[in-house]
Design a protein around this nucleic acid. Sequence first.
DNA 1: AATAGCTAGATACAGTGTGTATCATTACAT
DNA 2: ATGTAATGATACACACTGTATCTAGCTATT
Lengths: 123, 123
Amino acid sequence: MSSIGLRIISLRERNHLTQETLAGSLGISRASLSHYEKLRREPDFNTIQKIADYFKVSVDYLLGRTTNPNMVLDDNVKDFVDHLELSDRNIIEKFSLVIDGRGLSEEEAKSFIAFVRAERSMK
Amino acid sequence: MSSIGLRIISLRERNHLTQETLAGSLGISRASLSHYEKLRREPDFNTIQKIADYFKVSVDYLLGRTTNPNMVLDDNVKDFVDHLELSDRNIIEKFSLVIDGRGLSEEEAKSFIAFVRAERSMK
DNA sequence: AATAGCTAGATACAGTGTGTATCATTACAT
DNA sequence: ATGTAATGATACACACTGTATCTAGCTATT
């Protein structure tokens, strides 16, 4: 059902962290973290968001609702700009433009980018 | 901190549902739903995912996170646009939109939003 | 092989948080 | 005013969580 345990394990090991160190960073006990990984306990919203923030993934990813851990950080403009040399298509795939919790379709995002370029070229 | 309560209220009212009917659809008691909306209780992951699925939004959105990859997209885009709850200005501030290395001016962003709305309203 | 050190899984229990029934309150129409 | 629908608030039994602690596996060193 839920894959949050496997996701946390994967993220933790990918970053070469022990349960001990990660738990410390999250401000919880190692035992609690172990429980989350082994699906014996469910972290509360505060904790799951700390985990998401720590690994810079979405909560939906942690919950196994999406396979894409990438995300747009609203205040991380630099990261966004770093990827602007990609094609429109890649930009769209890399970042999900979201308004009010719901994403733009790929078509809309493409139109958006083309629209801004057209506007600018007029000046 | 968490805005899940307001999000649920907003989604529920947008869809003209009472606590009673929504709670029924989610398989929980009305009292529980009321608690979630008033931030007296935290739904477990199973329930919050039911809510996300029901309204076709992400869990990240429900939690009031500003990041949001891989949305569950709703085909009814027009309905979505009709119910944008943020002002244009808030949308602009929220996204820090950048194209071709240049941040969108407020004017550009407004044009974009108007553009998307116009596009969507045609469907 | 034995030991030590590190890491993670399992368990028990006190304490906290949750779901629900129930009551109170508000809003609104008649 | 009265009735009705909807929501907010409260109390309590119960379930779940966080943590300490114990156990076990693994690796390196001697």
